[in-house]
Amino acid sequence: MKNNPHESILLGQFIGKYLTNTESAKEKEAVDKWMNERSEHKELLNSINSNKKLIQEYELMDSFNEKMALERFKEKLLLKSKIKALVRWRVAASIFVLVGVIGILYFLSNNYSKTNVKSNLYTSVFTENGQRSVVVLPDSSIVWLNSGTTLSYLGDFSNQNRKVVLNGQAFFQVSHKRDHPFLVEANGFVVTVMGTKFDVSAYSEVNEIAVVLESGKVKLTHQDSDSFSYTMKPGEKAIASLADNREIEISRVDAGVYSSWKEGKLIFRNSPMKDVIEKLRKWYNVNIEITDPEVYNSIFSGTVKNESYEEIFRLIGIACKVDCEIVHNYNKEAKPQIIISKR
């Protein structure tokens, strides 16, 4: 075998043809030559041609669904090229994705004339815990909503007036509109962007905002403070909290990993247990109880995709050396409970 992938590809193809009697004279010559170079080559050829390997490889290839994969690929390309279509999201079969779209009429005051009614029509998209969703806004920006998130915008949202209100976590892929910034308001903070990709996490119960910028430029400000302003660079994560006099904490993160939830995956890389628990609680819509504070000292790395919560907590148990007890609640309304304790 020569030392580059090109050679391996060609030889592999020759061997495939050779073993199916479809090779040309030249190809046969090449295989013969290769075969006689080293005894390992003959062994390799024999191994490829053994019944055991032949059936094993056949069944492995046969187990993948090409057609579905091609559809998935095309869907992704469509989404990427921003054709305005609501794309069905491939998430784990065990997880329901529901989009609740509620149009709420707010007649704020009688001062508004009839022509203004349309502009006061609020559209809210929400996801419950355990659900995720994707929305295409009228300006063709795309927003992925993580679990337990509400995104609202006024009826007069347009290419000129682009403002949304967020409670929860969302990833924004904002279409570029010259002179018309896109505003995200969350927990009193305002993120101003032109056209870029970024992740905003601002659940109302934590009183802070975390913004991760994947590409482009965004500005972070606060409604009530003129002095508070920070312009982020790609790859940065900014956490600003209401409590600490709106101090801002900047760190660098892998933006792709941070926002992996939008691909239906949760990726943890050396994440503190507190984060892991918080995210899994929303992801699976389960209750998690920690009996020993020491559990919080653990860190966890792993990728969650199609796994059931039983499986994930079993893995956390192994990796972090803690006990995860799962209490199934057969009352339909109640959530399953996971009790994590020190081993």
């Binding site: 580059n4 193809q13 043809k17």
Partner: peptide, 13 residues
Amino acid sequence: LEGILRKEANGII
């Protein structure tokens, strides 16, 4: 490299 060679061969088979 062995992986590539095998998969290309097996793909044809």
